[in-house]
């Protein structure tokens, strides 16, 4: 999977490395900004009220 991505990135090794870092950061950003905020209320730490049931 990662080998496939690496092979398909353009440029020489340095550009590939730079693009990889950018891709990783983008993935982390999407996780923190969209995926985790969606998933976090599914955990039990949000139930602090007595009228939600």
């Amino acid at each position: 999977m990662y080998g496939f991505i690496w092979r398909h990135l353009p440029g020489n090794v340095w550009i590939k490395a730079l693009l990889s870092v950018v891709l990783v950061l983008a993935a982390v950003y999407v996780l923190f900004q969209y995926v985790f905020p969606w998933a976090e209320p599914l955990l039990p730490f949000n139930d602090v009220t007595v009228d939600d049931q």
């Binding site: 999977m1 923190f32 985790f36 976090e40």
Partner: peptide
């Protein structure tokens, strides 16, 4: 085998990131 391993590592990383998110980032 390589693909499955890579997926496992990825899932593990995401779980660690999620724990960081819940405990620290929130």
């Amino acid at each position: 085998v390589r693909t499955v391993s890579e997926l496992c590592v990825t899932v593990g990383t995401v779980i660690v990131l999620f724990v960081l998110y819940v405990l620290f980032w929130t």
